[in-house]
Computed example of a mutant assay.
Amino acid sequence: MPKAFTPKVITANALIEGDVVYLTADDRWSPRLTEAELLTDEAHAQVRLLDASNRHAEVVGVYLADMDATQDGPEPTHFREAFRRKGPSNYAHGKQADL
C-alpha cells in the first residue's frame, strides 16, 4: 500500500546567490518559508514540481520538502529543512545576520 501524501513545499537554491528559496502560490521564489505554497494534493504538487524544475535560469536542486501545516505557515518535519531555512552556520551572514 502506498504511503499517504503529506503536505510539502517546493524548495531549491537560488542560482546566483545560492540562498535557499521556496516557491510561492503566485510563482515567485521567496527566501521566507512562511510565504511558501503548502501543497496538499499529490497531483498538484507533481505538476508544480515539474514546472519549477524547468526554471533553470533561476534555481538549482528543486525538490519537494515535507512540512507540517501550522497557523504560522509551513514548518519543517525534518531537521535538514529546519537547518536549510536558517542559512549558513559558519558565521553570521545572510539570513543569520538578520536575526
Rank of each mutant, 00 (worst) to 15 (best):
P2F: 05
K3D: 00
A4C: 01
F5K: 00
F5T: 01
P7L: 08
P7H: 01
P7R: 01
V9R: 13
V9A: 07
I10Y: 12
T11L: 15
T11Q: 15
A12I: 10
A12G: 11
L15Y: 01
I16C: 02
E17Q: 12
G18F: 07
D19R: 13
D19W: 03
D19I: 11
Y22W: 11
L23K: 13
L23V: 10
T24D: 08
D27R: 14
R28T: 04
R28W: 01
S30A: 08
P31K: 09
P31F: 07
P31C: 05
L33M: 09
L33F: 02
L33D: 01
E35Y: 05
E35D: 14
A36F: 03
L39E: 09
L39P: 05
L39S: 09
E42D: 13
E42A: 12
A43I: 04
A43C: 02
A45W: 11
A45M: 12
R48I: 12
L49S: 12
L50A: 11
L50K: 05
L50C: 05
A52H: 03
H56C: 05
A57N: 12
A57P: 01
E58I: 01
V60K: 08
V62P: 07
V62S: 11
Y63F: 10
D66K: 09
D66R: 14
M67N: 06
A69T: 09
T70P: 04
T70A: 08
T70V: 06
G73A: 14
P74M: 12
P74N: 07
P76T: 02
P76H: 03
P76N: 02
H78S: 12
E81I: 10
A82Y: 10
A82G: 09
A82F: 15
K86F: 01
K86A: 08
K86T: 10
K86P: 04
G87T: 03
G87N: 08
P88W: 09
A92M: 14
G94A: 13
A97D: 06
D98I: 10
D98C: 13
L99I: 14
